[in-house]
Design a protein around this nucleic acid. Structure first.
Lengths: 96, 96
DNA sequence: ACTATAGGCAAGTCATGACTTGCCTGTCAA
DNA sequence: TTGACAGGCAAGTCATGACTTGCCTATAGT
């Protein structure tokens, strides 16, 4: 896949971003439980894991493995591309 | 469908937004030809039309029928939701 | 050594969205 | 009124992505 917009198209992945925004650096299991609780997201651990893979592949999150645990960190900078693409004033010949 | 992110997930639809940003208020046929030319987008008129329906349903474009012609106008304001959701500084309890 | 915990790999099901083809409606010009 | 042009409706094909189930690896604790 590896496409930013494609990655954002799944509600579950957006919920993950929301959740990480509230509490950064969670592990897979933490995310599973908290998504089920606060976001009414009842998914398999596998499903969440796959979503995390996608999000990481497009740069929306970074990970850090530490012995048994793998922590997930939100990175919203790729989203800036959206702003740059359509939300900036036009300018006859793109400001380069 | 009627979901902003879902709408953005199709490359063809993003190309349409790009094209309308360059030249607003185009008709379906104008879009067809210009997309084929400048964006290497070889799609049926029907395909484009369906994409336009989706984009309109999520508010990314507005239309104005005028006798034989239907003009399409870009509206990027829904995209602001993305910025508000993830690109704004956090704030312990959402600035409301 | 054994068990529990955290995570990964792989294959399979299922639904939905992208695109096509075929035909129909409406408006303008000769 | 006939033909050309702009657009719409509907059904069908096809691929891909979301999610599951089942099993495997690795680290830590007792």
């Amino acid at each position: 896949m590896a496409d930013l917009f494609e990655a954002l198209s799944a509600p579950a992945r957006r919920a993950i971003l929301d959740e990480l925004r509230e509490r950064d650096g969670q592990t897979l299991f933490e995310l599973c439980t908290r998504l089920a609780m606060k976001h009414d997201l009842a998914l398999t651990r596998q499903a969440i894991s796959q979503h995390l893979d996608v999000l990481e592949s497009v740069g929306l999150l970074t990970t850090k493995r530490e012995s048994r645990y793998k922590y997930h960190f939100l990175n919203t900078s790729p989203l800036q591309a959206i702003v740059d693409r359509w939300l900036t004033p036009k300018g006859k010949d793109e400001v380069s």
